[in-house]
C-alpha cells in the first residue's frame, strides 16, 4: 500500500500514464468525503461527511412521507398519504405472512430497516449522489443487527431448544451431525450474505453505470454508451426496490426461525 499507483493499476486516476486517455474512476463515487473543508481532511467518527448528508436525506424522506404526508389523517387519503399507507400495509402484510402474527411487535424494527434501505437506495440513484447502502460497513451493521436480534430473540423465546434449528430431526440419525455442521455454517454465513448481497448489488450497479458513463468519453460509441446508461439506470431503479424488499423479507424469514425454530 506504499505506492498507490502500483497497487491500483490502470484504473487509478493518479496513474500518469493514463491521465491523458480514457480514465475510469468507477470507485471514486463511493468515497467518504468531509462535507465541509478540504478533500483531504481526515475523517473522524463524528465528522460530517457525505454519508451524513445522504443518510439525513433518507431520514428527511421518511419524515416527509410519514410525518408531513400523514398529518391530515384523512379518511380519504391524498397521494402522499396513500403511498405511506401502501408502504405500511406492504411491510405489515409481509411480516404477518412470512413470520406470523406474533411477530407484529417487530414491525417497527423491520419497517425502519426497510425504509432506510429503500430511501438510501433510491436517493443513491440521483446523479453524483452517494450511496450509503453500497458500503459493507453500513450493510454489515444492518445485517449484524438482524443476526444478533434473531439469535437473542431465539434464545430468549425458546431457550436451549433454539439449538434444535441445527438438529434436523426429519433426517436420518446418521447424517444429522453432518447436517448440523452445514446448518451451523449456513447460520453464521447469513449476516455475510445478507450484507454483501445488498452492498454488492448496489456497488455493481453504480460501478457499471460509471463505466458506461466513462465510455461516453469516446465520441464514436458515446450514443451507445448513453443508451446503455439509460437502460442500466432503469434496471437499477428496479434493483433499488428489490434489494430493499429482499433484505426485509430475509429479515422476516430469519425472525421466523427465531420465533418458530421447529418448522
Amino acid at each position: 500500500m506504499a505506492d498507490p499507483v502500483a497497487t491500483t493499476g490502470v484504473l487509478t486516476a493518479g496513474d500518469p500514464a493514463h491521465a491523458e486517455g480514457l480514465s475510469f474512476h468507477p470507485m471514486d463515487q463511493f468515497m467518504v468525503k468531509p462535507l465541509f473543508g478540504d478533500y483531504g481532511d481526515p475523517v473522524y467518527w463524528y465528522t460530517i461527511t457525505n454519508v451524513t448528508l445522504w443518510m439525513a436525506l433518507a431520514v428527511l424522506c421518511v419524515v416527509g412521507l410519514f410525518v408531513l404526508g400523514t398529518s391530515r389523517r384523512a379518511i380519504i387519503p391524498n397521494r402522499v398519504q396513500s403511498v405511506a399507507e401502501l408502504a405500511y400495509g406492504f411491510v405489515y402484510k409481509m411480516i404477518e405472512d412470512v413470520t406470523g402474527r406474533d411477530a407484529v411487535k417487530f414491525f417497527p424494527y423491520v419497517f425502519t430497516l426497510f425504509l432506510f434501505i429503500l430511501f438510501a437506495n433510491f436517493l443513491a440513484l440521483i446523479p453524483s449522489s452517494f450511496s450509503p447502502t453500497s458500503h459493507i460497513a453500513v450493510t454489515g451493521l444492518l445485517a449484524l443487527a438482524v443476526f444478533l436480534t434473531v439469535t437473542i430473540v431465539g434464545f430468549v423465546k425458546n431457550g436451549a431448544s433454539f439449538l434444535g434449528l441445527f438438529w434436523v430431526t426429519s433426517a436420518p440419525l446418521a447424517i444429522r451431525p453432518v447436517l448440523a455442521v452445514i446448518e451451523l455454517i449456513s447460520y453464521f454465513v447469513r449476516p455475510v450474505s445478507h450484507s454483501i448481497r445488498l452492498a454488492g448489488n448496489l456497488t455493481a450497479g453504480h460501478a457499471v453505470l460509471k463505466v458506461f458513463a466513462g465510455f461516453a468519453q469516446v465520441a464514436a460509441i458515446s450514443p451507445l454508451a448513453v443508451l446503455g446508461v439509460t437502460a442500466i439506470y432503469g434496471l437499477e431503479v428496479l434493483v433499488a426496490f428489490i434489494q430493499a424488499y429482499v433484505f426485509t423479507i430475509l429479515t422476516c424469514v430469519y425472525l421466523k426461525d427465531a420465533l418458530h425454530p421447529n418448522h
Binding site: L11, S193, I196, N201, T203, A207, V246, L250
Partner: peptide, 23 residues
Amino acid sequence: FIGIAFAEALGIFSFLVALLLMF
C-alpha cells in the same frame, strides 16, 4: 424473491472477488 436472492448472493460473491482482485 427469496429464491432469487439466494441464487444471486453467490453470483455477488464472485463479483466481489473480482472487485477485490481489481481494486
